[in-house]
Design a protein around this nucleic acid. Structure first.
Length: 181
DNA sequence: AAATGCGCCAACCGCGTGCGC
DNA sequence: AGCGCACGCGGTTGGCGCATT
């Protein structure tokens, strides 16, 4: 009966659990989270394993303070996209959607409200610093502004269908567009 | 030093979507 | 076409640590 029901661990992850999960994912890949949760011996649900992997254990995750460039970029992206954190995260290298969402809720939402009361934000090159930081990465996002009509400019400029795109051509386009308006 | 308030962040929850059968 | 499973997303919660009183 109830006593025989499977025990599912909740709450904070231990270093031992992290190690188990990392090891299992390294061998089998980050998919089929339900079976990962079962086969790895973790008393966790698949959802929990997936979240832990995505937000903490997977490689190339930058942790710690957000830079001014990242602040700037998040603010602008949020103005464009709203609370679509996964889309925003795709454009911020090495940050997770959860981290950006938390950061927004605790820091930037206030900052954003404050800035709404101020005149238009002067162009900051801060966001573009990111491009130089990430200049080694492929720039896949197409963006020839000359070909774009005004009606659907945003959709064409920012090709969100491209997953994992860290190219910053589109950021330039976006920022330049803002400057013009 | 203890109590309380507050902010931050990791984790959970519910719902929507995609895909295979 | 309908169903079930797996996954992804955004909103919310809960616990911890720091600051203040």
């Amino acid at each position: 009966m109830a006593s025989k029901e499977k025990f599912v661990n909740r709450g904070a992850w231990t270093a031992e659990e992290d190690e188990k999960l990392t090891h299992y994912v390294a061998i089998n890949g980050p998919r089929r989270w339900k079976s990962i949760a079962f086969n790895s011996g973790l008393n966790r649900c698949g959802k929990s394993c997936r979240l832990r992997w995505l937000n903490y254990l997977r490689p190339n995750i930058k942790r710690g303070n957000f830079s001014d460039a990242e602040d700037d970029l998040i603010l602008r992206l949020h103005r464009l996209l709203g609370n679509r954190w996964s889309l925003i995260a795709q454009r911020i290298p090495e940050r997770t959607d959860n981290e950006i969402k938390n950061y927004w809720n605790s820091h930037l939402s206030k900052k954003s409200k404050l800035m709404e009361k101020l005149p238009a934000i002067p162009f900051s090159s801060a966001a573009l610093q990111l491009e130089s930081i990430n200049c080694g990465k492929e720039t896949e996002a197409s963006g020839d502004p000359a070909e774009l009509s005004s009606a659907d400019t945003d959709d064409k400029l920012f090709d969100f269908s491209i997953k994992g795109t860290y190219g910053f051509e589109w950021v330039k386009n976006f920022l330049e567009l803002e400057e013009d308006s």
